[in-house]
């Protein structure tokens, strides 16, 4: 599959790769997808006392566009409030990365991941 420059950039230099301690109260973890489907994303957010996402990290098993979608997402959520982060739509990710139609599900997975991470954080409070 021939990808655009933006996917290749995120694939070659993925931003914010890594993990936080999932047990920490200020950390929200979202893990979505399944190995059998060929993609699993783990997105973690670190939320400040003011409800703003201070930091984000990810690890992804999947194709190039799944890696790029999660890498982009970590850049976008930083500095956003939880409510703002919830508003991130898969279509915006797909558009920014110029994903081909067959790869749209990767951006859907990224949207699922941020929601799951926020839910996890809120359930801990």
């Amino acid at each position: 599959m021939a990808y655009g420059d933006k996917v290749m950039d995120h694939y070659d230099n993925p931003r914010n790769v890594g993990s936080f301690d999932a047990k920490d109260a200020e950390i929200g973890t979202g893990m979505v997808g399944a190995p059998a489907c060929g993609d699993v994303m783990r997105l973690q957010i670190k939320v400040g006392t003011d409800g703003v996402i201070e930091d984000a990290k990810f690890k992804t098993y999947g194709c190039g566009s799944a890696i790029a979608s999660s890498s982009l997402l970590t850049e976008w959520v930083k500095g956003k409030t939880l409510d703002e982060a919830k508003e991130i739509k898969n279509t915006a990710i797909a558009e920014e990365l110029e994903l081909p139609p067959v790869k749209i599900h990767c951006s859907v997975l990224a949207e699922d991941a941020i929601r799951a991470a926020i839910d996890d954080y809120q359930s801990k409070q």
């Binding site: 993925p14 790769v17 993990s19 190995p35 783990r42």
Partner: peptide, 16 residues
């Protein structure tokens, strides 16, 4: 593998 959450889990001894 450094990017893979599954590799992390495998290394942590979690049965996927």
């Amino acid at each position: 593998r450094d990017l893979s959450p599954l590799w992390d889990m495998f290394k942590d001894g979690i049965d996927l």
